[in-house]
């Protein structure tokens, strides 16, 4: 009798508790959106269309025409080289236009900051927005050769990044060779490096760029300068045919 009472009490207790559901089975599927073809949700279209139309005209403007597709890769690639070269050129032009007695030595572009590839054939403003969606600006920092070497070591660990004005050899993820302007880096000398404000502000763990001897914020938007310089080159020289030039290479 006592046992029955305890059992009844236990059952009552069980059922009086707030009943929390238990998971019995889990079914999963990660779906690729590329294979899906269905009709587009009209309610979403109604929201998006006016926005899409208002920027379509700007985005379809031609910037340049490329003989090949430009895809980023390590240790170097056509895309990282192109962007790094343009940033060094834009920084150099800026110093000339401001009558500064500064000639930037090199440029550094963080690999992760290039967000899309560029196609073979026509490259529109829209494509440059995809490549460089950020509102980042060119910054010049005056840093020691020692910092340049630290940068080289970081690039070596990462297997490559975007650079211009630099030749860099990697062996076993370590920096083996580093030349700036064709010369061996002097750790105690100062160099002018062009990069973006994100990196100059300590982004992407590039702490060697913190506390530079001097810093110039050009206020030049990188996306704007990419469009301008590429469009000018196209008008002047026609189709671009970017080549890799071995500026970053793996040593045996």
């Amino acid at each position: 009798m006592r046992r029955l009472f305890i059992s009844l009490f236990a059952i009552l207790f069980l059922f009086s508790c707030a009943h929390q559901l238990s998971v019995h089975q889990i079914n999963t599927k990660n779906i690729s959106v590329d294979t899906y073809s269905g009709s587009v949700d009209s309610a979403i279209q109604v929201i998006v269309k006016p926005y899409r139309d208002s920027i379509a005209n700007d985005m379809s403007k031609l910037v340049t025409v490329s003989a090949t597709s430009l895809v980023k890769a390590k240790p170097e690639s056509k895309l990282t080289n192109l962007v790094s070269d343009i940033i060094l050129e834009a920084a150099t032009n800026y110093c000339i236009s401001q009558n500064m007695k500064i000639k930037p030595d090199a440029s550094y572009v963080n690999y992760g900051g290039l967000r899309a590839s560029l196609p073979q054939g026509e490259i529109t403003v829209g494509r440059i927005f995809e490549l460089m969606p950020f509102e980042n600006e060119i910054v010049l920092i005056h840093i020691s050769g020692e910092s340049i070497l630290r940068m080289g070591e970081r690039i070596a660990i990462r297997g490559g990044e975007g650079v211009a004005g630099i030749k860099l050899g990697i062996r076993d993820e370590k920096l083996a060779t580093l030349l700036v302007g064709g010369k061996v880096v002097d750790p105690s000398a100062l160099y002018w490096l062009a990069t973006n404000d994100y990196i100059a502000n300590g982004g992407d763990q590039m702490s060697m760029f913190s506390n530079p001897a001097d810093r110039i914020d050009t206020k030049i938007k990188i996306r704007d300068t990419l469009i301008e310089i590429m469009a000018n080159r196209y008008k002047r020289d026609g189709i671009i045919d970017i080549k890799e030039d071995g500026r970053i290479y793996n040593e045996q």
């Binding site: 559901l21 238990s22 998971v23 019995h24 089975q25 889990i26 079914n27 999963t28 599927k29 990660n30 779906i31 690729s32 959106v33």
Partner: peptide, 9 residues
């Protein structure tokens, strides 16, 4: 891509 997960309780 998108993830789809069913929990059966």
């Amino acid at each position: 891509a998108m993830g789809k997960i069913e929990f059966i309780f």
